[in-house]
Nucleic acid binder design. Structure first.
Length: 497
RNA sequence: UCCUCCGUAGCUCAAUGGCAGAGCAUUCGGCUGUUAACCGAAGGGUUACUGGUUCGAAUCCAGUCGGGGGAGCCA
């Protein structure tokens, strides 16, 4: 048995593939079967004159996604996907598929999500999952090569009090337990045992957010390092992201092409990334230059919409006389243009809000999604924003020794509008200050007894951050929505399949 | 929770108050190199649901349900 990605090594030889029918085309005496086996696609040609009658009959019975073992000779042929094709000698049907719901035509989001278990077989989804795999493995390699120990934080937790986000509540032997929203506090305990650790696991947020950046269940990577300050923390985050991007470019070129990703943009992602303070970011948002940029953006959108409408009118005029094949292309193009026009409409409706948010941003307020997009607009690499107002940040963040109003936190914002992929910072290491913060945040000291112990027994400066896996995958794949970056996304209103 | 857009054949969509339609998919027929193959034919409908306006509703109005995008919140 040979896998499709090994075919170039078997040119001119007889091989057997085991897989599924991705697509099939028939004519009088020829059948073209596109076979997929999980490693790639291969066109297999059955010629009636070259095979026994039973093989021809088998080929005639195949439907999309039928399972088969197929044998033949490998021929180099430029007309085929991947440059090689199989001249079939024999076919063994493993199972004939029922009528397959996902045809090689277009489908809507709702339909595809309802068939996610089958959608995973489609080419773009296949490519995205392989990039996800590369990213996961790259993260492990990055940390393992630097002496980090991978450890797991618990998924059930007893305290619902850590932050403001809503948690999923479960029944835990007649007591309440919550699904974790972060492994960080436990990460701190583990870092005090091993120096440098990272967790890699699922986290849960019961927020009712329906946006392209949110899931209720997502995977987070949280390194935590003893004796690291904020600057070292930022160095590490930057080095890690650069490494991941380089690995994806090296390993997944084919997948990025399938995903129609602008590879040039990814090639520009190299350290160092710009670092700006929160205060500088607010100034940037308030600046006349930002106002100009937003005005230009609005004008550009309007011009683009006009151009697209003209294009649409031209296509409409052509449609009546067009041949069938051309009608397909026109339909597809119209779909793309209409989707873009909807997006422009939405942008134009939102622009005044974005403008207001940016220009009237006051020191002390947190950034919204639009502010993040505006901050990264000029950059091809991620941007790190550090030194947030302490008031909007969590109780465990260490304050800047030179300015008590500022917390030593950092967010990394991905370019191209993908938003926050990393959030982290230096942790408060003083027991007295932490006790005071718990009081200020009205948090129950009893629940955090173990956490406070870490400051009692050999407290040291330490830092860490959380990387959102799905947002990273979305950014590197150029996907519009995080739902396509995880095999079975969990979102508000989606628990099936 | 709020704002906004949408719901028509298995799928993607058209029909903007006047006979419910096309392509794909399915079935049948044709075609020796197809690239979402192509050509011909057939079957396929409670227009999400409930009520209202109207001579007449897929279309207008109200409510309900489901979905997309966004705000808040965040990775």
């Amino acid at each position: 048995m040979v896998y499709i990605n090994e075919i170039p090594d078997h040119s001119g030889k007889q091989i057997t593939l085991k897989g599924w029918v991705y697509n099939i085309r028939t004519s009088k005496k020829l059948i073209f079967i596109i076979v997929r086996d999980g490693t790639g696609l291969c066109q297999s040609v059955v010629a009636q004159d070259d095979v026994p009658e039973n093989v021809w009959d088998s080929a005639s019975r195949l439907q999309q996604e039928s399972a088969l073992e197929i044998s033949g000779l490998v021929h180099a042929d430029e007309r085929s996907i991947g440059g090689h094709e199989l001249h079939v000698r024999d076919i063994r049907i493993v199972s004939i598929a029922d009528e397959y719901p996902i045809t090689p035509k277009e489908h809507g989001v709702e339909f595809l999500m309802e068939h996610r278990h089958l959608w995973l077989r489609s080419r773009k989804q296949w490519a995205a999952m392989r990039v996800r795999n590369t990213i996961i493995f790259a993260i492990h390699r990055f940390f393992q090569e630097r002496g980090f120990i991978q450890m797991d934080a618990p998924i059930f937790t007893g305290n619902a009090a850590e932050g403001t986000t809503n948690l999923f509540e479960t029944d835990y032997f007649d007591r309440k337990a919550y699904l974790t929203q972060s492994g960080q506090l436990y990460g701190e305990a583990m870092a005090m045992a091993h120096g440098k650790i990272y967790t890699f696991g699922p986290t849960f947020r019961a927020e009712k957010s329906k946006t392209r950046r949110h899931l209720t269940e997502f995977w987070m990577i949280e390194p935590e390092m003893a004796y690291y300050d904020l600057a070292m923390n930022m160095d590490l985050a930057e080095e890690m992201i650069s490494f991941i991007v380089q690995e994806v470019l090296k390993i997944n070129h084919e997948e990025l092409v399938i995903l129609e990703r602008d590879i040039g943009k990814l090639e520009q992602v190299r350290a160092p990334f710009p670092r700006i303070s929160y205060t500088e970011a607010v100034e940037k948002l308030n600046s006349p230059k930002m106002q100009e940029k937003l005005d230009t953006m609005a004008r550009d959108r309007e011009l683009e919409a006009e151009k697209l409408k003209d294009e649409l009118a031209a296509l409409d005029a052509e449609f009546g006389q067009a041949k069938k094949g051309r009608k397909f292309q026109i339909d597809r193009k119209r779909g793309e243009i209409n989707a873009r026009l909807d997006q422009i409409d939405e942008d134009l409706r939102n622009l005044p809000v974005w403008k207001k948010s940016a220009l009237e941003k006051k020191w002390g307020e947190d950034f919204g999604g639009s502010d993040e997009t505006l901050l990264t607009m000029d950059d091809t690499t991620p941007v790190m924003v550090h030194g947030y107002p302490a008031e909007v940040k969590a109780f465990y963040m260490k304050r800047d020794p030179e300015n008590n109003e500022i917390a030593l936190g950092v967010d990394m914002l991905a370019p191209e509008g993908y938003g926050e992929i990393i959030g982290g910072g230096q942790r408060e290491d003083s027991l007295d200050i932490l006790l005071q913060r718990l009081k200020e945040h009205n948090l129950p000291e009893e629940q955090f007894r173990w956490y406070l112990d870490l400051r009692k027994y050999g407290s040291v400066p330490h830092s860490g951050f959380g990387l959102g896996l799905e947002r990273t995958v979305a950014w590197l794949c150029g996907l519009q929505h995080v739902r396509e970056t995880i095999p079975f996304p969990r979102m508000m209103g989606r628990l099936y399949p």
